[in-house]
Amino acid sequence: MRKIGMVLPVAALALSACVTINIYFPAAAAEKVADKIIEEVWQQSDKPATVKETK
C-alpha cells in the first residue's frame, strides 16, 4: 500500500507533463506546413528554388 502512495503522485506528475507538451509550439511541424503552403502559393516543385535555377 505504501508503494501506491508513491506511484500515484508520480503518475499524476507524469500525466500532467504529457499534457503540457501540447502547449509547446511544434516548430518542426510548422516548418513543414509552411514549406508545403509556400510551394503551392509560389507554384514551386519539391526541389529548392536554387536547384531549379541551374541550367
Partner: peptide, 9 residues
C-alpha cells in the same frame, strides 16, 4: 500519443 498530437499542425 501526446507527442504525436503535438507534432501535427
Amino acid at each position: 500519443f501526446n507527442v504525436y498530437a503535438a507534432a501535427d499542425i
